[in-house]
Simulated assay, not measured.
Amino acid sequence: MMNEAEQVQLDNIANNDYEIYALLKQRYSPRTFKDEKISEKHIKQLFEAVRWSASSNNLQPWRFIYGVKGTEAYKTIFNCLSDFNQSWADTAPLLILTAYKEKKDDGGENFHALHDLGLCLGNMTVQAQYLGIGMHHMAGVDWQKAQDVFDVPDGFHISTAIALGYYGGDLGELSEELQEQETEKRERIPLQQFAFDGKWSDKQ
């Protein structure tokens, strides 16, 4: 029998205007996760998905620091999160910091580094969904603190954090406000507001 959190996962399937790949429909950003360690095999598979993502000039500027719950690395990453994210992120069995290399090997600016980081995280997200793993990407991270405590070398920039875990967490671990957010209807802006045929549109 499915628990409440697993039912929420099913209920959170996006109501698309046009049919899309099933794993993309199912994906959402949970704030509670099953109390189960992510297997080492699955962690390697997530980063293998990153490894084979598209990259401008094949520079692969992405970098990651990760910590498994119960380790010092996990605690250190957690302590770099914003207060709001710390209110729920300790339900995640795995925390990740994302980073990118700012310049090319010849010293020139890598204008597309953040684009590549986003592409590889898209790959990781689909692979995670295939494995039954939810990912919650977080902008709320003190990147300067993270740079310092992890001794990140010059030329690399911490960007975001991610909380990961298998779907099926206990909603009761969250505050009432977060429980409401976890179960509310998913909304997206319509295509007409961001995809323009032939010329820029004033629709916003």
Rank of each mutant, 00 (worst) to 15 (best):
N16H: 03
N16V: 08
D17N: 06
D17C: 01
Y18P: 03
Y18E: 13
Y18F: 13
Y18C: 00
Y21E: 15
A22H: 13
A22C: 05
L24M: 13
K25I: 02
R27P: 06
S29V: 08
R31M: 13
F33S: 07
D35L: 06
E36M: 02
E36N: 04
K37D: 14
I38R: 06
I38S: 01
K41W: 00
K41F: 08
H42A: 12
H42W: 08
H42N: 14
H42S: 15
I43M: 06
I43N: 01
Q45G: 08
Q45T: 07
Q45C: 02
L46R: 11
L46V: 06
L46M: 13
F47S: 07
V50H: 00
R51Q: 09
R51E: 09
R51I: 01
S53C: 13
S55V: 10
S56A: 15
N57Y: 12
N58Y: 09
N58T: 08
N58E: 02
L59R: 15
Q60H: 08
Q60Y: 13
P61K: 07
W62I: 10
W62V: 02
I65N: 05
I65E: 07
Y66D: 11
G67A: 00
G67R: 01
V68P: 05
K69L: 03
G70N: 01
T71L: 00
E72D: 14
A73R: 11
A73Y: 03
K75W: 00
T76Q: 14
F78H: 02
F78D: 00
L81W: 09
L81N: 04
D90P: 02
A92G: 05
L94S: 03
L94T: 12
T98F: 03
Y100H: 12
Y100V: 11
Y100L: 14
Y100T: 06
E102H: 03
K103V: 13
K103C: 04
K103D: 04
K103R: 11
K104I: 06
K104D: 10
K104L: 12
D105V: 03
G107V: 08
G107C: 09
L114K: 13
H115C: 04
D116P: 11
D116G: 04
L119Q: 14
L119H: 01
C120H: 06
G122E: 14
T125I: 10
Y130S: 03
G132W: 05
G134C: 04
H136W: 09
H137C: 05
M138R: 05
A139N: 12
A139R: 08
V141C: 10
D142H: 10
D142T: 07
K145N: 15
A146D: 09
